[in-house]
Amino acid sequence: MDPRRLLRKAVLRIILGLLGAVFLWPPAASAQEEVTSSIRRYKDREVSTGYYEEHEVKPRRTRPFVQQKEVVRRYSAPVTQYRPRAAVEPSVRSRMEDSHEGIQFYELRRCEECHVEEAKHSHTVKANLTCRQCHGGEPIAGINYYYSPMNPIRRNAYVCAKCHEGASVSFATFLVHEPKAGDPATRKTFASLYYSNWFMYLLIVGTLAFFGLHTLIWVGKETYHAVSEKMKTKPEAEPPPAEKPEPKEPENE
């Protein structure tokens, strides 16, 4: 065969191959993650308490909380009205450097006076932690403030890992202040907890109601039979059956 024809054929094949590859090649991205799965990311190195850049981790993707539309709107919509209390709303405060800024007599107050529900959870009740051991000293930054240690992008390394050595981003998505599973609002914010709660609730009530009734009727019926059998056999065993109506008389009198 003519070597030129062979070369031409090879070049043509390479060009065709490259053209095909254009369609199959993944598009180049400006910042690609090393692995695509949010769960398996850094799996072999996750035990380290390393600091990750924000583009490396996507903590919000693994958070169970679904952001509510209202909250988004509050942010994106331009301020058309004078809303003096806007700064008090928690969604804003969670992004402030000093989340308690402007609260009157703040220095004289205790955390649990306002954060009643937040004060009751396993870390305070069981592990005997104080609020400041996680949330830090004054000024307490909002958890979503960019430089806050509590920011989900570094919470694992700066807060959780103080006790849970080797805490990962995934680990830090555990909700310490979890919403009440039975609360209707939880359906929107943490759906899997809400529906798990209903499932277990119905399972417990269903099982106990069914077998409770089953056992109750059963024991009642057996006892009734036992008593009625005794009533039947007693008169035969006792010699004078005629005495039976006599005890009723004193009762009537």
Partner: peptide, 22 residues
Amino acid sequence: PLAASRIMPGWVLNVMVLFHRA
């Protein structure tokens, strides 16, 4: 929990607490 959060998101443990207790 550390090992568990490597194979699943950490918030699954919130649900697991509920399952375990219930």
